[in-house]
Design a protein around this nucleic acid. Sequence first.
DNA 1: TGTTTATTGTCTCAATTTGTAACAATAGTA
DNA 2: TACTATTGTTACAAATTGAGACAATAAACA
Lengths: 237, 237
Amino acid sequence: MSKRLPSSSEFLSHIAYDLVIFGFDGHDLKILILEYHNTGFFALPGGFVRRDENLENAVQRGLTERTGIDSIYLEQFYTFGSVQRYKPEVMEAIVKANDFELPPQHWMLDRFISVAHFALINYNNVSPTPDELSDSIEWYNVNELPDLILDHKKIVKKAHEHLISNLYSRPVGKNLLPERFTMKELQKVHEAILGNPLRRTSFQRKMLSLDMLDRHEKLFSGKAHKAPYLYSFREEE
Amino acid sequence: MSKRLPSSSEFLSHIAYDLVIFGFDGHDLKILILEYHNTGFFALPGGFVRRDENLENAVQRGLTERTGIDSIYLEQFYTFGSVQRYKPEVMEAIVKANDFELPPQHWMLDRFISVAHFALINYNNVSPTPDELSDSIEWYNVNELPDLILDHKKIVKKAHEHLISNLYSRPVGKNLLPERFTMKELQKVHEAILGNPLRRTSFQRKMLSLDMLDRHEKLFSGKAHKAPYLYSFREEE
DNA sequence: TGTTTATTGTCTCAATTTGTAACAATAGTA
DNA sequence: TACTATTGTTACAAATTGAGACAATAAACA
């Protein structure tokens, strides 16, 4: 009773995408990692592009399937195309461990070039869902990842670098935090991404000077000190 | 006596690359545009990836074929994968105008995802060479391009944006200028890329503070004024 | 051989931005 | 009412940048 893989008439051969999905739990920067069934292989979520589908739509679709969330910040950052990443035995092991039928020249065992994307999502609104071939998908601290297959470690590294270089030009916190947040929470996001502490007053001044934030009511947390304001990112025009 | 296209066993299907090759003639930022034989089509140089070849090697190979230069600054910046760019009639016209045999289901008429790169080269060391399908390759002012096929105009725009955002973090002038150059020449390169004038003294101070330049002997141009120093970009460690 | 012209290298001072710390406000606790 | 922890704001020094002035100089010219 072995299952059937999708046929090559449905998908573009040689093209895949990988996803580095970032989240923030209040302390650390995290990403979602899949564990493939019965293989001990860890990998980034990924998928293929349908023949009649835009690349970006395919990625958005995969992201929604893994997280249950629509309309997330998503950005393509690099395409990985070295020959060294062609390891048919890895894919073969994954497919076989999942009890799929595997014709010898199947397109999924051929060489792939992968268009890597990263996403920023709100950690608390997500219900991570494994794909057909994997039995778990879990959050891992960016600095404490398990061994990943192929060049996925390199993909994560490059994604993280892109995230850092975008920190001040895009509303990064908007996608990692709830709709409204305190300045301290935003600072913690930035610190988690950069990996080093920031000065409170300079950070506040810089963020406000970017003219991206709206100030709202105060948040009374019940703690014995002055209540901080809540902020939100202004909707871009 | 029609010629034969390469077979699909040699190349990866569905994957192409396009090249935005920047040069600087002393006044304007230029790029190389191909004109396809007998079609009136203008396009970016591009090509396909061999099955046993790294993506980046394929691009480097194409670049060398078009310019005659090795070891050029080359950077991947985006992968274009919308369905709208699938226009088999364009490729068909090009191939037919060049008197190639064209089997109906040929892989070159299928949908492609294109990994776009930009290169920076020294305008004067180059002998642009058309590819098999085109009869000319010429420098065009970035702001005065002819109509280009598919989404190539968009690709150029994005390449230019990337170039601008890299201006101060990478030795951009190194690749667009001769080995040794004056501060004024470097300033002109930056002005051509940015599209607006820069202040002489601030520019000089900024460039020197980046600690990327070595100062050499003066250049006596024969003009009736103080001779400027020559500079070169320091070899990175 | 001075004098002039065009351009370059350097310096100065003001304007702006950033780093750092101090201080006052305040929500809840003791 | 005093105390604690944290926040918003202000103040001042340090660093960076903007804008211009000025002296140096290579060749042309008188």
